[in-house]
Design a protein around this nucleic acid. Sequence first.
RNA 1: GACUUGGUAGCUCAGCUGGAUAGAGCAUCAGCCUUCUAAGCUGAGGGUCAUUGGUUCGAAUCCAAUCCAGGUCACCA
Length: 633
Amino acid sequence: MSIVSSIQKNVTAGLSALYNQSITEKDFQINQTKPEFEGDYTIVMFALVKSLKQSPDSIGNQLGGYLIKTYPELFSNFNIIKGFLNLSVTNTFWTNLLQKNYANAGYGRKEKNGKKVMVEYASPNTNKPLHLGHLRNIFLGWSVAEIYKANGYEVIKTCIVNDRGIHICKSMIAWQKYANGATPQSTGIKGDHLVGDYYVRFENDLKAESQVLINKINLGDLCDFSGVALEKLDKLLIALTKLDEIKDEEKIAKLHDEIKEIARNNTSVMAEAKQMLLDWEEGKPAVIDLWKKMNGWVYEGFDITYKRIGTDFDKIYYESKTYLLGKYIVQQGLDKTVFFKKEDGSIWIDLTADGLDEKLVQRKDGTSVYITQDIGLALQKYEEYKIDSSIYVIGNEQNYHMKVLQLICKKLGMANADNIFHLSYGMVELTTGKMKSREGTVVDADDIVDEMIATSQMHTEELGKVKDFTVEELKDLYDTIGLGAMKFYLLRVDPKKTMVFNAEESIDFHGFTGPFVQYTHARIKSILRKEPLANNQQALTSSNLLKLEKELIVILEQYPEAIEQAAIEHNPSIIAMYVFNLAKTFNSFYTEHSIANAETGNKKQLRLQLAVMTANTLNSGMELLGTRVPERM
RNA sequence: GACUUGGUAGCUCAGCUGGAUAGAGCAUCAGCCUUCUAAGCUGAGGGUCAUUGGUUCGAAUCCAAUCCAGGUCACCA
């Protein structure tokens, strides 16, 4: 049990003994005492004044007196300042805590709780390489998985590959046109990048062709259009002439976007892509073969990246397989009247009673939409692994989609539908604005990883501390530091929030960064190589603890709580902040006090234990962030 | 327009289930390496917590309104 909960318990017991009133733990708060006051933990008396009908100081005095009398092994002293009861914890408590846990590598981690959770992350499309946004997603998913493991869950890491759809057809069309049979082998280009290049090629063609159409439309020439598209265009153009007078720029831009969309859909290249999608669904061998070939290149490319950044999956799902299950479930749901069919044959669910709209789950031509396969997959996950809960690491632009998905699962009677959790994370923006693939401002994952590793190499060489390392050891160290910096940078921010990626800041290895934490660890290991801690040490007599010694133990005591909180909030940044705080405190301690030349043998022993426990905890915490810590750097 | 998320130091972020004088890192300035790794440490300056009102012993935190910014509202995925 954490010290705060012990105090909570003791205070509740004390209050009921003193006042014969049942005060619960929610009726008062325990905070850490501010450094300018004496004491370790503070209880605010004001909250109790009303129910106990006494002055804050009087309650404080009685409660403080009771606590040190009743729990002398825990509390040594108290004082009251302006209604705040400050409690001092005995040195014995702190040294005992240190003695008990310093050598425990699993400190802070919980026993298995028998529950299974699935974490879905990464989930890329197979038409272009991974970018910075994917990295945030992947690091988050991995870290949350580790954090859940540390909390006693059995975790299954999974990934749904969006390998089917118009996007991959676009790459295929452009490849057929321009590639002359080029392959990753023949060009030396990583598979995912090669396929991505042809996707860009397609988009360029599409842009050029649609621009011609837009120009004609702007001149009032609609001869390229017919049917529904023509009708829509007519309406848009009329709306535009009206708005020109009002000068609502936002609305005008919106209308122009709609025109652009119609133009894009009316191009010959788009028609080719759509035809290819139909051919794919019909299973035309030539299309399927090409699809398999190009997807294969992408997977090879992804695998290289995954391996490099140290991520993997226990199970990979493919959309090309799950969509059929989705359609099957939609049929079943139709029989159960969860869904209903419209006259044109399309299938919908009515969510208006839940404050949402009607949502299409299957097109009139019988093909599945995005949510169809998600329904199938959600069910399949539960049936295949008998999981208790399911975490989806997906960007916040899909909040609505996930809300709908969860609701549908519930209506279909899925047992654990309430335990679907959407870990909704914010976009990664650049200092120059948003990343937009169409404008080529996307930061490529492989590039940025290269850059981070190169930077770590540069710094390491400049400092020249590991000149005796072998080539392999050096390479491993550069990877450890470069990736450590990268992961820490992306994980140190609350996942929910949009974050700004500052290229200059990201390669800074000082301050609130991964390398700072890694450095602290290496520093401790260096001491321990010279001053190994003997195993069979007698119990320490709890002499006076210095301020920084105690501060370190106090922070170490909070680690289990941090692990727990990180899981509750699905938030690795709690661990990042914790580990930084611990490293910072150790560094202050390190410069103030010598370990090797401590004043007494007893002190040396205590400080070595502190060093060992700090190193263990830094290692453990960084592991939860998917990051290694080096022995030397 | 509806729904939703955010606005805290020059920049990037903590703090938000109400508590004492609002914190880090970067950047700026001033110091510290013949003793355990200076990727470190110490100190200084830097704030109308978007604005206004309310709730109360006490508000960055809760409530309301307003302003600003992002996201969603597809028979795309």
